[in-house]
Write a protein that binds this DNA or RNA. Structure first.
Lengths: 199, 199
DNA sequence: ATAGTGATGGCAGCAACTGACATCACTTGT
DNA sequence: ACAAGTGATGTCAGTTGCTGCCATCACTAT
């Protein structure tokens, strides 16, 4: 293992900044190299210059380290949704928020590719991703309710939005074409509208 | 603990029939009584008159014991979808299959209530449920493709169907009204159609 | 009877995760 | 400058989920 592959060095003591970030980087690198199951938490911690116990202070479990960004993504979506014009139909407000979020994700395509490859290789990680998406749906449904949308429409709109996002994201990751993620989202929404219209 | 609460007796040797069923019943009972995390696999096995090692021969992990039925549900859905008339629009064929499956679930409402209460109390179990639903969606998408539906439409239709089912099932479980689950599904689909039409 | 077969038990071991407590680096008040 | 305080980290022991390996049991076929 080359020294360059390690993201700490011996001159670091305790209290080196950004322990969480170092753990995230170390985990993603190791999961990508050897696979999720073949990586122990102790190895991640060691690579980050910390101990296993400290890992579990930052992340609830071995999987969560890949999903720390979900929180800020959720905040962004809810915020964008809340500031949409009142005139927008709920489904379009949701789509607009997802497109904006997609534009952000797009800026880190390399990272997204690497991360998704790791997740795709392990069912436990897929489970975690699904519950994060479900959490996003709940948060968006709540934001819609604050806009006066009633249930079940609010929940259905949010769930439909997440379905659209999932399909669009999947195509963005797996198709070599360099098209825009927001563009994929728009197209998927149009497809959903066609499909639910019985076409 | 009363003797009646135990689903084996000392006259049983090895080779008593339906080990899997006994494990399922024991697990659901214990998860409902003390909660999922407070129940050890050893306790489940003991209650079923077996050992921990045997539990893991029947179920891949402690959560899976609650989801054994998902396989047959998936077969049923795919079969029903495959035998829908060619004239039916994809979304309506999916809805019809889901309604038929809902009619089956309805026959065991007590069991469904108990099981959902256990799942609702634990995020790990919710994760597992989500991936089972995602698997259902994949299987339905594949069935649609065999009907000639192309791909983003097939995936989107299946995902939308699962979203409809989730919302309908949730209402069926949590609303005291004794309305039909298939009826909830129809209504949720209508809501989705309205919502995606921009209303 | 004997050998074979499939289900089960027993045991050792690893890794994920947790609680309790010690220790260190840095800050604050005086 | 020094002591007390604070928050992040280390250390260690323990539980539990889960797996591999081999022995054992009940039953079946020849």
């Amino acid at each position: 293992m080359s020294v360059a592959a390690i993201n700490y060095d011996l001159s670091m003591g305790r209290w080196e900044p950004d322990a969480r970030g170092r753990l995230e980087q170390a985990a993603l690198a190791l999961y990508a190299e050897r696979g999720f199951e073949q990586t122990t938490v102790a190895e991640i911690a060691k690579r980050a210059g910390l101990t296993e116990r400290t890992f579990f202070r930052y992340f609830a479990d071995k999987r969560e380290v890949l999903f720390w960004g979900a929180g800020s993504l959720q905040e962004f979506l809810v915020g964008t949704l809340a500031s949409a014009p009142d005139s927008a139909a709920p489904i379009d407000a949701v789509a607009a928020a997802l497109e904006a979020a997609g534009a952000l994700l797009q800026e880190r395509r390399e990272f997204s590719l690497k991360r998704q490859a790791v997740i795709a290789a392990n069912t436990g990680l897929q489970e975690r991703e699904l519950i994060k998406l479900a959490s996003l749906a709940s948060a968006m449904a709540e934001a819609l309710r604050r806009r006066g949308v009633r249930d079940p429409a609010a929940s259905l709109t949010a769930e439909a939005g997440i379905a659209v996002f999932r399909i669009a994201f999947d195509r963005w990751i797996n198709e070599s074409s360099q098209r825009d993620l927001p563009q994929f989202i728009r197209e998927s929404l149009d497809d959903l509208k066609a499909v639910t219209a019985g076409r």
